[in-house]
Design a protein around this nucleic acid. Sequence first.
DNA 1: ATAACATATGAATAAATGTTCAAATGTTTA
DNA 2: TAAACATTTGAACATTTATTCATATGTTAT
Lengths: 120, 120
Amino acid sequence: MAVNDVECCETFQTHEELLKVVSEKMPNEDKLYDLAELFKVFGDSTRIRILYVLFEAEVCVCDLAETLSMTQSAISHQLKILKQSKLVKSRREGKSVFYSLADGHVRTIIAQGREHIEEL
Amino acid sequence: MAVNDVECCETFQTHEELLKVVSEKMPNEDKLYDLAELFKVFGDSTRIRILYVLFEAEVCVCDLAETLSMTQSAISHQLKILKQSKLVKSRREGKSVFYSLADGHVRTIIAQGREHIEEL
DNA sequence: ATAACATATGAATAAATGTTCAAATGTTTA
DNA sequence: TAAACATTTGAACATTTATTCATATGTTAT
């Protein structure tokens, strides 16, 4: 049994190799945190509904509020989160602010999620 | 101004059309909830780290605990969540329980997430 | 400048979530 | 059967989070 091996589950397996491969491919702590933060953004049905609206059109905050039957404040708070994670972008036009999707990953990620839950 | 149009942002736009298209393409409430629940699972760095280990090998609970330097109870709780959402599957072999990825969506979804955060 | 509209923000509250600890369950070996 | 090992589970605690309410900021028209 090699020096770095660890007793575990009585299997006395060589963990050296696993630990090495995992530590090579595992993103660093900051990146893992960012990744989790990104998926947290998708982990709320209000934000997903907002994204589904933006799949169809560029809309202003009060249109979103009306379409989703929620207060303008609640929508605005969620849009801020979506914007911080670069999933949506905004553009001011007079008194209104129009929001739209920032890039294509949004569609891909949600599509993969749907595929997964529909396969069950 | 058509009957169903709504005053919003003083734009007096035809919301009929948007509402119609959105309601056609928006998943129903249950599916939206499931979708959000799925992404919530990805929204925790401990679970993402578990998935990264499972990218490399089928491992037992105490291997995971050791590799990630966490208690086996914490790992077990998270594995339960991953299993409930069908992202991982398990197999008992003697006293140990081995976990592995359940399907390919896990890799795709995480890959898309990484692409997104690395593009910024 | 003032009023009206659209959006953003901060504080507060209620609900959800991850980890720890202790104890229970399931499996193998003596 | 009893003891040892691997995993699961439930309750408790601290932290995070989504919405609401009130208010502030920014823009346009009078």
